[in-house]
Design a protein around this nucleic acid. Structure first.
Length: 488
DNA sequence: ATTTGTCGTTAGAGCGTGTA
DNA sequence: TACACGCTCTAACGACAAAT
């Protein structure tokens, strides 16, 4: 160890060090607890594996600002020299801060590897020296000692020198660790060729349904908003909470222990009407009655139409009861409900291959999923408050849902649509849905892209496909005629 | 276009750890 | 003591699907 105090010898040594490739650097600070901390000494190790601390140079730079600046300019800023520090951000406060180049922080390295992997109790330099590098007799006392006093004691100088020795040893060990844990190389993502024509980046099953019902309405809705539901005015009651009503029905089935007792007898002993009646009763008392009260208190005219909704829900419950009894053949009473109603993430995503060889993302969320043990098949449920205006559009919508889910599940998925006002059940088997999803949907999606990007007065406006008598109740009939003109 | 509910991302507050 | 950094947790924000 060389302890250098004279300006000339320090500058000479700094000049020597500029040819080094790597240096292990540490500092000691006097008055660190005060407003005006002073850099006391800079320790530099030039050779790793120097347990005898032969190649440590200690520069005494207390209050010698020109020497400190010289060190910073010659060593710290020089990008050719790698400087290794423990908790480098601390030393850099006195040695060039943001100007310093090519700094390696062993604390950062150690943190990245983690305490657990290193199997050490903490990441202090002294701990790493003892627990990672097996140094014994590591001195801790002098760290907080008075580095402003001169002359420095032999003990202080020994401590200061050993710090860099530990630093180099720890550094070597950490390098070995990070080499051993080479992370999987970063996967180069192929740059996606951006299409010159601006096309919708993704579509939804709901939009697809609309595209089948009326492309013009799809277009108007996309650009100008407005309602898309074809409804006779006398049908319309506010059942925006309709999905909530169904949600609560299924939650009730899943969470109410009473229903387990209901399914205690064997399947052959169970009677659909009886089961359904029980569910209806409980649901009416728990959920629907309160909803009815609340709605009619706001508007007493709602009572009559809401009773129609109830009639629909009752029939829905019968359907559920039938399915549950079928499945009771295969499940015990405790599990039949949870095995029938499958609760999981309802989001769906799929990239459809279009006829023009491009791909289009379709995103959607289905309503519910059940399993029928007799058919050994999943079945996706879609709820509609009102009768569909166009059955083929409805079919297309559930075909997309079924198809996307079947891709996830790697299994066929049937679909059923329940309409509540008035109650009607539409069952579609996977065999017909798959055909539609394969043959019809990709072409429709391609058309939709064209329709949605169409700008008046370019040719090929979206056709009006809806039947004329239904167009009379189109929610945007007026706008459609004024925008597209002619027949609707 | 606007709204509504859900869900995932992100900024930042707070805490712990490191330095003399 | 003071400051920097990173981790975690949360609140705010925005994206999204579906409905109006």
């Amino acid at each position: 160890m060389q302890y250098l105090t004279g300006s000339i010898e320090i500058i000479t040594k700094i000049n020597e060090l500029t040819s080094a490739k790597i240096l292990w650097v540490d500092t000691e600070i006097a008055d660190w607890y005060t407003e005006k901390p002073r850099l006391s000494i800079i320790q530099v190790l030039t050779k790793a594996n120097d347990a005898a601390s032969q190649s440590v140079y200690i520069f005494d730079v207390l209050d010698k600002h020109d020497l400190i600046s010289y060190f910073i300019n010659q060593i710290m800023i020089n990008p050719q020299i790698e400087k290794v520090c423990h908790n480098a951000s601390f030393d850099l406060k006195y040695l060039g801060s943001i100007d310093a180049q090519n700094i390696t922080c062993t604390l950062k390295k150690a943190r990245r590897i983690s305490k657990e992997v290193l199997q050490v109790s903490n990441l202090q330099l002294k701990t790493l020296a003892t627990e990672l590098c097996n140094f014994s007799d590591v001195d801790k006392e002098e760290q907080g000692s008075d580095w402003g006093r001169r002359p420095l004691t032999q003990k202080q100088l020994k401590y200061a020198a050993m710090d860099t020795v530990y630093l180099a040893a720890v550094h070597q060990r950490l390098l070995a660790f990070s080499k051993a844990n080479v992370l999987t190389p970063v996967i180069e993502v192929a740059p996606s060729s951006t299409q010159p024509v601006e096309k919708p980046k993704s579509l939804t099953p709901n939009k697809l349904r609309l595209a089948f019902e009326c492309p013009r309405l799809l277009y108007l809705n996309h650009h100008f908003g407005g309602s898309t539901l074809f409804l006779q005015t006398e049908d319309v009651i506010d059942i925006s909470q309709f999905h909530n009503l169904v949600d609560e029905l299924i939650n009730l089935l899943l969470n109410k222990p009473d229903f387990i007792e209901l399914f205690r007898p064997s399947a052959s002993e169970l009677v659909v009407e009886q089961i359904a009646h029980n569910i209806q009763q409980l649901y009416y008392n728990r959920i629907f009655y309160a909803y009815l009260q609340k709605a009619t208190s706001k508007d007493s005219k709602l009572a009559q139409p809401l009773l129609k909704v109830w009639e629909g829900l009752k029939k829905l419950i019968i359907s559920f009861a039938e399915l549950l009894i079928i499945n009771r053949n295969y499940c015990d009473a405790e599990n039949v409900i949870s095995e029938t109603f499958i609760v999981e993430d309802r989001k769906l995503e799929h990239y459809f291959n279009l006829p023009d060889n491009s791909q289009l993302r379709v995103l959607g969320r289905y309503d519910y999923l059940v399993f029928n043990f007799d058919l050994n098949r999943l079945c996706l449920i879609e709820f509609k408050a009102y009768q569909p205006v166009d059955l083929s559009a409805q079919l297309a919508q559930v075909a997309v849902y079924s198809y996307m889910l079947s891709q996830n599940k790697k299994a066929p998925v049937d679909s059923v649509v329940y309409c509540i006002l008035p109650f009607k059940e539409y069952y579609y088997s996977w065999e017909q849905l798959e055909h539609i999803a394969h043959e019809l949907i990709p072409r429709k999606l391609e058309q939709m892209q064209q329709w949605l990007t169409w700008r008046a007065p370019l040719p090929n406006p979206p056709p009006a496909t809806i039947q004329p008598h239904l167009c009379q109740i189109c929610p945007q009939q007026q706008k459609c005629q004024s925008y597209f003109g002619g027949s609707s």
